[in-house]
């Protein structure tokens, strides 16, 4: 395939992915808007008003960037894991495997679908948050960079999960038992400064800490970790996840017999 044909193939996969989640918007877009509205009301308004300030901002202002990031993480991941596992389950992945599309284009097409859903949900959640609080943006470029890298990273992780999954239960195990706890412990609802030294140090091993902190820095200008280090860590994870995903596709592990 020449470059143009590869571009056509990429656009085809991405368009298919976007149409998929738009078709079932009540399962893919609406839940995040409702869940986040509840978070804003309960944690931001009701409980947050009693907490006072955190990092120099009202608790509502502090928690919103973390919640937006949480929506991006879960939606990017969920989109790719559900879509690619579905294709594996009904064997329609063979449509791609028998075609001449290079593996990296297949991967980029699925990731683009996940990224687009992550960003779309982020826009929805951000719009909802404006009903509850003002939303300063300290560094727009950093916000864009972190959103892009995070949605790419978790789309890739969703892809890896889908390749290894054998049943629909398997695609829920990682989000339920790994992703959600790491997100909750990644500083979405609190500053790491509140933790004892030992647990603050342990938290440094949680990749979600870097994602949430970097995004919060882009929005508020305050962070629990060094931003350059956080971006470096995210970038490293993206490269590792991309390389491994590509390896899985090229070797056909769990896709070909």
């Amino acid at each position: 395939m020449n470059r143009y044909e590869q571009y056509v193939a990429f656009m085809t996969i991405m368009r298919k992915e976007i149409r998929r989640y738009l078709r079932i918007w009540s399962q893919t877009l609406l839940p995040s808007a409702i869940t986040m509205s509840l978070y804003y009301v309960i944690f931001g308004n009701l409980i947050g008003s009693r907490i006072g300030t955190m990092g120099g901002f009202s608790y509502m202002e502090f928690v919103v960037p973390g919640l937006i990031m949480m929506a991006i993480v879960t939606n990017s991941y969920a989109n790719v894991v559900a879509s690619f596992f579905g294709a594996k389950f009904n064997n329609s992945v063979e449509e791609l495997l028998v075609s001449p599309i290079p593996p990296y284009i297949i991967l980029c097409g699925y990731v683009a679908g996940g990224v687009s859903r992550g960003i779309l949900v982020a826009v929805i959640v951000t719009a909802v948050s404006l009903f509850f609080t003002r939303l300063p943006i300290y560094s727009p470029l950093l916000v864009i960079l972190v959103v892009a890298l995070t949605s790419i990273l978790f789309s890739l992780l969703g892809f890896i999960n889908a390749v290894f999954a054998n049943t629909f239960d398997d695609i829920n195990i990682v989000p339920t038992f790994v992703l959600t706890p790491l997100t909750y412990l990644g500083g979405v609802f609190y500053s790491l400064d509140l933790l004892p030294d030992f647990w603050a140090a342990v938290s440094q091993a949680n990749p979600l800490v870097y994602v949430v902190s970097a995004f919060r820095f882009g929005m508020l200008g305050v962070s629990d970790v060094n931003i350059a280090f956080a971006i470096g860590m995210i970038l490293l994870c993206v490269l590792a996840a991309f390389s491994y995903s590509l390896h899985l596709l090229r070797t056909g592990k769990r896709l070909r017999t």
């Binding site: 193939a9 085809t12 294709a87 329609s92 449509e95």
Partner: peptide, 22 residues
């Protein structure tokens, strides 16, 4: 059968063409 049963007939064909760079 190895197509996505939730997709429309027309989309299955146009997508497949796209996978070949058409």
């Amino acid at each position: 059968f190895n197509f996505n049963v939730f997709e429309k007939v027309e989309d299955i064909l146009t997508n497949q063409a796209g996978y070949y760079g058409i």
